[in-house]
Design a protein around this nucleic acid. Structure first.
Lengths: 115, 115
DNA sequence: TAATAATATAACAATTTACTTATATATCCA
DNA sequence: TGGATATATAAGTAAATTGTTATATTATTA
């Protein structure tokens, strides 16, 4: 059975361009399974906090992720209500699982430390 | 049943980056169904011949398309033997059909004129 | 209220991208 | 062989991208 998705070419290209960056692609794969905050991504990608923030903003700007503030922390998750989520999901489902990155954080103690 | 594709993150990001351009994405969608030559894409996208050639070269360089010379013309088609074709295909299958662009060429007489 | 922590934003620099125009290459055919 | 056609390549440029560092914002807590 063919899944019916009615994404437009322009929108599809926009989404794929955002996914065409290894950092953002990995973020999305992780976020599809886990809720994460900025500091965790800083740890995972060994990249500056502003760099992570900027990637997340791009993803948020086209509606792929959503944020929820809880105290000092802002938690990011995949926006499954987005009309293009089915399109996104089919891409993410083809990617290798990235849970090991979260597990590594947990072993570090870096995951619980802030979130 | 989940389709097994074992693409690596780095490779996936590379492919998605190439697809994240409306011209190349549309090219790939068309090429998945039709064999085309450069001049047809020049007509379809109303873009210079070198621009089209350069897009096709990028797609060829990572193995997504292949070329076959027939006389003066070089015919491009999707490289279905590529190990990452299943990954690509799942993306393309979600996009709206672009056959109308080829049909328009046929009505123009621009398709048969060269190919 | 002041210090700290998490995150966002601004400003900037290096790199990459996607065109352009000009030119080279390859094939066909008279 | 020479002109025409289809395509590729080279060189240059403007805009976009992706990082950086510095600073602002927001919430927490002593």
């Amino acid at each position: 059975m063919l899944m019916e998705t009615s994404i437009e070419m322009e929108k599809a290209a926009l989404i794929l361009k955002l996914l065409g960056d290894q950092t953002r692609l990995t973020m999305m794969k992780i976020l599809d399974q886990h809720v994460c905050c900025v500091c965790e991504f800083v740890e995972i990608f060994q990249m500056s906090q502003p760099a992570i923030s900027q990637h997340l903003r791009k993803l948020k700007d086209i509606g792929l992720v959503r944020e929820e503030r809880k105290g000092q922390w802002i938690f990011y998750s995949v926006n499954k209500r987005n009309e293009d989520y089915p399109f996104l999901k089919q891409v993410l489902d083809q990617l290798p699982n990235q849970d090991f990155k979260i597990i590594k954080l947990e072993k570090n103690g870096t995951r619980i430390s802030c979130c």
